[in-house]
Amino acid sequence: MTQAAERRRRTFSYGQRAEWIALLFLLSKGYRPLAWRFSAAGGEIDLIVARGRTVAFVEVKARSAMDDALVAIGAAKRRRFARAARAWLSRHPWTAGMTWRADAVFVAPRRWPRHVEAAFELEIA
């Protein structure tokens, strides 16, 4: 395996672990999972969870330092994320009367995950 391929494999594995950590953390806060790794319209949403009348589309960011994770969601990522959220909502009309939100969970080694509700604007319209 080439060095680049090995690095991609490690990064992918690290991201998967971070998504599991984020999911367990959200479950402990009373959220229930609706989808994991939803991909559509050129975008991907790591987790889609619900609690009460709120559906949260969650971006999980894992970095070696929490501060690096906090700044890792750029404008292009937010646009792709919103496209995927619109696609998911169009397939689930039962969510029409609910509140929709773009959350983030930041994961770093030896730190508790950080859940940020409404981490960025979810441009649905």
Rank of each mutant, 00 (worst) to 15 (best):
H92I: 11
A22F: 06
R111A: 08
S90H: 09
A18I: 04
L70V: 07
W112K: 15
L23Q: 11
V55Y: 00
P109F: 08
R9W: 12
A40K: 14
A84P: 00
W88E: 04
S39V: 02
R114N: 04
R37M: 05
A82I: 03
T95P: 04
V49E: 00
W94H: 12
W36L: 11
S64P: 05
Q3P: 00
Y31E: 10
A125L: 09
K61R: 07
A22K: 05
T54I: 10
R53M: 13
A62C: 06
E44W: 01
A119S: 14
E44V: 03
F106G: 00
E123M: 10
A85C: 03
A41I: 03
P109S: 05
F106P: 04
V55K: 00
A72G: 00
P33Q: 11
V55E: 03
K29W: 09
T99E: 08
Q3V: 09
T2V: 14
V116K: 06
E6K: 09
F38W: 14
A108G: 13
R80D: 13
T95Q: 08
I124W: 03
A118S: 13
K77M: 04
A118R: 14
L26M: 09
S39P: 00
L23F: 05
L89F: 00
A65G: 05
G74R: 10
A96L: 09
L47F: 02
A18K: 04
V105M: 03
A35D: 11
W100K: 07
G52Q: 03
R17I: 09
F12S: 13
G30D: 07
R110W: 07
S28K: 15
R10H: 14
E19Q: 14
A118G: 15
F25V: 04
R9D: 10
R10M: 12
I21L: 07
L23Y: 08
V55Q: 00
A69K: 01
M98A: 08
R79Q: 08
W94P: 02
W100I: 03
R9F: 14
A125P: 15
A4F: 12
L122D: 04
D46S: 07
E59G: 10
P109H: 11
L27F: 15
A35N: 07
A65P: 02
D103A: 10
